[in-house]
Each structure stands twice: as C-alpha cells, then as structure tokens.
Design a protein around this nucleic acid. Structure first.
Lengths: 120, 120
DNA sequence: TCAGTGACTTCAATTTCGCAAGTAATTAAG
DNA sequence: CTTAATTACTTGCGAAATTGAAGTCACTGA
C-alpha cells in the first residue's frame, strides 16, 4: 500500500483551489471571460498584456480542469471561443471578494462595473 | 511628465490584490494566522511544508504591506509573534469562498471547521 | 559543556516566467 | 497570382523565482 497522495500539497480546499488558479494569470483570464470576452485575441488584449505563451498554456489547463470548454464558432479557418463552465463561473464570488478587498486597500484601483459586484 | 504607473500591471482591483497575495504561499500563511497560529515555527509546521526561506520572505512582505505586525512576546532571546491587522483579517472572506469552491469541485478536500465558514 | 530549540539565512539546482520572434491557415487587396 | 493582414498559437532563450537542504545565531536547560 503506497501512501501516494491524491493531492499536490495537502487536502485543504483552499490549497487545492490555489493549486489550480492561484498563479499570476489564471484569475485574470477568468475575470475577462466572466466579463464577456470569448476569443484568444480578446483575452490577449487585456491591459495587463499577458504573454501569449502563458495565455495558451493557461487556457489548455483550464480546459483540462473543465473550467471552460472550447467551442467552434467558425470552420474556415477553424476558430474557437472559450466558454466558462459552471465550475469556472463559480469563481465569480472569489473575484468579487478580491475586487472588494482591492478597492478597500489598494489606493487608486478601478471600481468594477456595477453588475460585476452585484449580490456581493 | 513621465507616464510612470503606480501599478505593477493595471489598476484592476483584482490584479492588485493578486500582486500581493496571489502566489503559491501567501494565502496559506494567512489561513494559518486566521486559524490561530502565531509563531514562525507554528507557521512552518503546516501540512503543506512551506520552505523556510519562502516563509521568512512572505512574512516580511506581509509586514511591509501592513497585513500583519510583528509583536515581541519574549525578550531573551527575542521572539516575535505575527498578528494580522484588519487589512490582513479582511482576507478571510476570500479564503472562505476559495474553501467553498474547493470543497465543491476538488474531491476529497477537508471540510474546514465550522467557525471558519461562519457567516458565509 | 553541550545538545536542543526557535528563527531565520545561504546556496545550488531546478522550474517557471516574460519577451520576442516565428509559424500555419485563410481571407482580402492589387 | 502574389503579397499583406489577421487570428491563434508555438518556439527559444535569458532572467527571475522556487525548492530543498544545510548552515547560522542567540540563547536555554541539563
């Protein structure tokens, strides 16, 4: 009986969340998808200017984690849009709380659009 | 007039939150402080086994960001405990939401103690 | 005097990251 | 028919960050 652990670091739900989206770019991508962006180039166009290799890599990871699905919206040439699943959309409350914290404690940060913070 | 930006990446409150605590270890440290840990060795003892150089560096950063203060609790030898400020304690809702997401979507994760999830 | 403890620091070996440039498929323009 | 543009990536490389292990320093207690 091997003591192989199904978890990377521990069974803590916080740690396991962070091991999926707790990096420099993943929540930025999800923010943009929640806000209506759909294509690769729309996502690449954020004010934060994510490097394209990082964007491609994170999108693959999010797809592998079933946080989003790729949907063909044009066949010649093949073009896909990225659509959040419920698992991905359920990140929204986390984004809202981070945005609230950021607005409270980091001076000069933008106020998100009203609909984004709704029900918080 | 230089166009020097006060922000690392953008004025987005989410991005600016992440630029403080959106790394592999910071929220794990805050989790443990919220849960009652106070000293360096208590923090180093987590199941995730944070490398000690990382722990020291993140504690210095959190102090510089006024997320916590170092309090002397013994003078020979000098020993400090780490205490969250309001700015640091206000991370709790974010931790609660991540924990909820983790429990919902990562199979086998621990259920946090009841008090931790209170009022969520 | 000497092992032990708490709180770090230092260092070498990866790993990850960001930037720039390149590629592939296809459409549009001349 | 040839060339330029567009979208969506991929490749390569140096720089920066992370890890794990070991070392340091100030005491304390036996």
């Amino acid at each position: 009986m091997s003591s192989d652990n199904q978890f990377l670091r521990s069974g803590c739900p916080i740690v396991n969340g962070l091991d999926i989206f707790g990096d420099r770019w993943t929540l930025v991508i999800i923010r943009d998808l929640v806000c209506g962006k759909e294509t690769y180039s729309e996502l690449a166009d954020s004010p934060e200017k994510i490097p394209t290799n990082r964007l491609a890599e994170r999108l693959k990871m999010l797809e592998a984690e079933n946080m989003l699905v790729k949907e063909l919206y044009q066949s010649k040439p093949k073009r896909y849009k990225y659509v959040l699943t419920k698992k991905g959309r359920d990140i929204l409350p986390i984004l809202q709380d981070i945005a609230k914290w950021g607005n409270n404690y980091v001076e000069g940060t933008w106020a998100p659009q009203e609909w984004f913070m709704e029900t918080v």
